[in-house]
């Protein structure tokens, strides 16, 4: 395990380096000029040149990348072109909202997946509900987000449609408002934070859950035809016990891999969902940074997402190994 973790840590460093280099290369092919975005369209070329010099944008890409690596090794991700603040500070400001959303949507996705599995196992009466779930999960994320907002916020007024919290005076210690509310002895803050989380988390969780369930259903279908399942049936075990004890465990590898994949897709979906729901997280920060070609900010978010993804991949691989001992780490 230690060797595996050490290998993966080295892999993480290499992946982040390659990814950051790709983002740097993108800068040389995209037409956007951060200096122009910063100084405005009317600024004369002399001003643009000054800004480019200040941010080192006139240096060759390789030199800029070298400077970036030196800065990163000292924990400095540079300064955002758009906010003029250190990118590290910006990331710390936006990260808790995104992590809280990812966490809640993952929990929700698992809950939905479990419910769907139960529906799948419960027979023909659940077909309509099953198809509704699948239709919702297959809807493009932007439509799903808008639909959820329209129905549950605008039409029914059951849940808030944007923002993170209605208590404007509240300042949390961790940045995770659900936890902060409890820590501060204000459960109403936690409830409100959960209410605000529900729709964006639902938009992220639905496609996630459906994909995992589809994968699990396929695997389970094959596993339930294996000889050892017939043996278990022959031994008089109940169908539920067979599925839970032998079926799901042996079928877990593919859905676990799908979970890792879905978490990667989740980062892309975050950009859409956070924009639709005005969720002040890294997705919104990234979207706004694209418009101003704010490379340091884009790079910073990419590094965070890349790190989270690799950590999730490690967790998934460990889980796969635990579920199926044939898979070695």
């Amino acid at each position: 395990m230690a060797l595996y973790l050490a290998k993966r840590a080295c892999g993480l460093a290499i992946v982040l380096m390659v990814m950051s280099f790709i983002v740097f290369l993108l800068q040389s092919v995209i037409p956007s000029d951060p200096a122009r975005a910063m100084a405005g369209p009317y600024a004369p070329s002399s001003t643009i040149e000054t800004v480019r010099e200040e941010f080192g944008l006139n240096d060759p890409i390789a030199v800029q990348y070298g400077h970036f690596l030196v800065r990163v090794s000292a924990g400095d991700l540079g300064k955002s072109v758009r906010t003029r603040q250190p990118v590290g500070d910006d990331l710390l400001r936006y990260l808790p909202a995104t992590l809280e959303l990812i966490l809640v949507s993952t929990i929700l996705a698992m809950g939905l997946a479990f419910s769907l599995i139960l529906l799948l196992l419960s027979g023909a009466r659940s077909q309509v509900l099953r198809h509704v779930f699948i239709a919702l999960g297959s809807t493009p994320i932007i439509l799903l987000a808008v639909l959820l907002a329209y129905v549950f916020w605008f039409s029914l007024a059951w849940l808030p449609g944007s923002g993170r919290l209605q208590f404007r005076d509240f300042v949390g210690t961790t940045g995770f408002y659900v936890i902060d509310g409890l820590l501060a002895g204000r459960p109403n803050v936690s409830v409100d934070a959960l209410a605000h989380l529900t729709l964006p988390a639902m938009a992220l969780a639905l496609p996630f859950a459906v994909a995992v369930v589809r994968s699990l259903a396929g695997s389970l279908h094959d596993v339930m035809r294996q000889p050892y399942i017939r043996t278990a049936r022959g031994n008089g075990l109940s169908e539920a016990a067979i599925v839970l004890r032998h079926g799901i465990r042996n079928a877990a590898s593919a859905p676990l891999a799908m979970t890792g994949l879905q978490i990667r897709l989740l980062f892309g979906n975050l950009l859409v969902v956070e924009t639709v729901f005005g969720w002040p997280g890294l997705g919104l920060y990234m979207t706004q940074s694209f418009a101003t070609a704010d490379l340091p900010a884009i790079l910073g978010v990419s590094m965070v997402f890349g790190t989270i993804y690799i950590l999730v991949s490690i967790a998934v691989e460990i889980a796969q190994s635990l579920a199926d001992p044939r898979i070695e780490l």
Binding site: A149, Y150, F154, G161, G163, T275, V276, G278, P280, Q288
Partner: peptide, 16 residues
């Protein structure tokens, strides 16, 4: 001045 990035959301919020 809330930040509401999506124009659709802005319109719905105005109507609401």
């Amino acid at each position: 001045i809330p930040v509401v990035p999506d124009i659709g959301q802005q319109i719905l919020k105005l109507k609401a």
